[in-house]
């Protein structure tokens, strides 16, 4: 079962990585298009990244718990 937990944690990490990557890339594009909106975009980016990260952490913790 240890292997499955590791796979679960890995999947959570992959999903979070994809999500945060998308957020980051689009934020950078947005900043490149509208440098004057940098601060607002940064705030929204951090918020979105934090929410994605929360989901990923829940996934990892669940995978740990299921492993018991």
């Amino acid at each position: 079962m240890t292997g499955l937990a590791a796979i679960g944690a890995g999947l959570a990490a992959i999903a979070a990585g994809l999500g945060i990557g998308l957020v980051g890339s689009n934020a950078v594009q947005g900043i490149a298009r509208q440098p004057e909106a940098t601060n607002e975009i940064r705030g929204a980016m951090i918020l979105a990244a934090a929410l994605i990260e929360g989901a990923a952490i829940i996934g990892m913790i669940l995978s740990f718990l299921m492993n018991k």
Binding site: A50, E53, G54, I57, I58, M60, I61
Partner: peptide, 13 residues
């Protein structure tokens, strides 16, 4: 709860 887990997960991680 997500606030709790996020901080816990990030720092412990």
């Amino acid at each position: 709860a997500v606030l709790m887990l996020r901080l816990f997960g990030n720092i412990t991680g």
